[in-house]
Write a protein that binds this DNA or RNA. Structure first.
Lengths: 321, 321
DNA sequence: CGTAAATTCGTAAACGCTTACAAGAATCCA
DNA sequence: TGGATTCTTGTAAGCGTTTACGAATTTACG
């Protein structure tokens, strides 16, 4: 049961009748190889099913690997983070990096060496972040931290835009379905600021608490409404929460958007409803992270970047009746 | 802002006053190097903060990397898959493999070469699986497929045990909260078989439909109960569904487990309730996948393995009143 | 048609590590 | 003490790729 040898660049070269250098150029460089030759090489590649060895590429200095450290428990917020993970993989690949998932020791040290690190999902004041920022200047946090490189979406701005949208539609009783943590706070701030700028008094009882996930949102909204709370607009701190809210409202016999307009946050793909929401450009966050990573690797002083965010109006909001 | 050179085995050798071969042996081999020499090498390693280059090791044939391909949309079932991902990373590392996340082309081809592949989360009859099974005999599916290597938990067995547990507690009206797809079907089969073996007639109206996730489960249970359906036991096809069901029942003023006993499936960690459930040994699934991968790499004919599953009785089931 | 410039391609070194091989040093036993 | 063993170590080839360099070929142009 002998193992089939994996084809290498030499096999391709032999089959195409060229040298390995040429194969490499045909594969990587935009120019410097005759179209006809390139064609022959590509055919050989397809015929053999050749795929370049990442290890060899890395050794030759063509790519480097960067470690992505994922905090455990991250799966509680999962759809968002998984999308981010995929986007990072893609963005790194584009820039000639390879994504390696590296475990983080309890003390906060990466368990594998890499050219740089990207940290996902650490808590607000996780001591491991201090550790990373001290010992690993070549790392980037997706989140906010004063003395690291960081990227984060413009949460306050997005929340502001969402609330503003509801206000512009004529709504005055606007509830907010919020969550704890730094992100939750920032989104709440945007909501509050928008109300203030439009001269609508802030009413604490209109702020409900969810947890970024769907069922707590459903229950909070249903309970609040059954308890007599009324509003014609709702800004939810995540799409999942928005879906929960909509389900609750509909189960109560209300119509979205005609009785209540709902705005979400994130713009997750493939949702069951076309949500009016604030889109996070996950690919943009990923590519910003990679750009910062390059700075971090060259030991530039750390800085943070807010990635813009965009209101997408779909079918869950309407003008107030 | 020059980047600090990463120390190599040569630097270590120079500092320790030995050859690179000796350093390598000191690091890898149990024997064949004088204790005193080894000591000197280790000191040099620590002093320089040397970490072996994974790429070079791989090129030299010491370790191999295996690609894990994650189907998009996987995040819909996410907690389970993220845990699995982490477990795989761990299990591979143990066996001297490195986990690399490799993107899958739309056609179903891995975009990076690796010693082997593990495929996660592809749909039942995904054409890309056919493709993989044809072109990449060195791959393992977590799931079930006739002509690939595959691992899967013992879904029918687990479902049987869950239902049996409810029957043994004296319940006779046992509902099933199910989901679509192969996994959903297999869990349903276990439920049905158990009823039959205990002489309890199968009543189709007791089978509710969720979608593996929490909110649809909540709504299905709530609606069914409000519609007059009654049962004293419920077997849910996933823990998330069980949580949704419990929330619904409690919102209806019922007590779990005294009015209704609920059993889940998966045994996710850190749930808000101590669920009676069927535990999937995720680490076992991961290590089985790795074991099969080794077979696959050596081109053994494909086979599938069911990993055992275990009923864990906690606080959501009770004897029928 | 002839020369200069541009394009294309082959050669070989380098990346960091492992390991087969051989040489040298230490140990053993008669 | 001397030869045979056994340990320890250095040497160098090889893993699959990229890329600087220079040779060979093609193109451009007067």
């Amino acid at each position: 049961m002998s193992r089939k040898r994996i084809p290498t660049i030499h096999d391709v070269a032999r089959l195409a009748g060229v040298s390995t250098g040429t194969v490499s150029r045909a594969l990587n460089a935009r120019s410097g190889v005759h179209p006809v030759t390139r064609q022959r090489v590509m055919e050989a590649v397809n015929q053999l099913g050749y795929v370049p060895s990442v290890a060899a590429r890395e050794l030759a200095g063509r790519i480097e690997s960067v470690g992505v450290m994922v905090t455990p428990r991250i799966w509680k917020y999962s759809p968002y983070f998984i999308l981010l993970f995929e986007a990072l993989s893609e963005a790194l690949w584009q820039e000639g990096y390879q994504l390696v998932e590296v475990p983080m020791s309890p003390a906060g040290e990466p368990l594998q060496a890499a050219a740089g690190y990207i940290v996902l999902g650490a808590h607000d004041h996780d001591p491991r972040l201090e550790r990373m920022s001290q010992n690993h200047p070549n790392s980037v946090l997706v989140g906010v931290h004063p003395n690291m490189f960081w990227v984060a979406p413009d949460d306050p701005g997005g929340a502001y835009a969402a609330t503003q949208h509801l206000l512009e539609l004529g709504h005055r009783e606007i509830a907010h379905l919020g969550a704890a943590g730094q992100v939750g706070r920032e989104r709440f701030e945007g909501y509050r600021q928008a109300l203030q700028d439009y001269g609508v008094p802030y009413r604490p009882e209109l702020v409900l608490n969810g947890a970024f996930t769907i069922l707590p949102a459903y229950r909070a909204v249903r309970r609040a409404w059954e308890g007599g709370l009324r509003f014609s607009g709702l800004f939810a701190a995540s799409d999942e929460m928005a879906l929960g809210a909509i389900a609750a409202l509909e189960d109560l016999g209300l119509d979205v958007p005609h009785d209540v307009s709902v705005v979400g946050f994130d713009d997750l793909p493939d949702l069951e409803r076309p949500l009016t929401t604030v889109r996070q450009e996950i690919p943009a966050i990923a590519s910003t992270a990679v750009a910062l990573l390059k700075e971090a690797i060259s030991r530039t002083p750390p800085r943070g970047v807010r990635v813009g965010v965009q209101l997408v109006v779909r079918e869950t909001t309407a003008r107030k009746r």
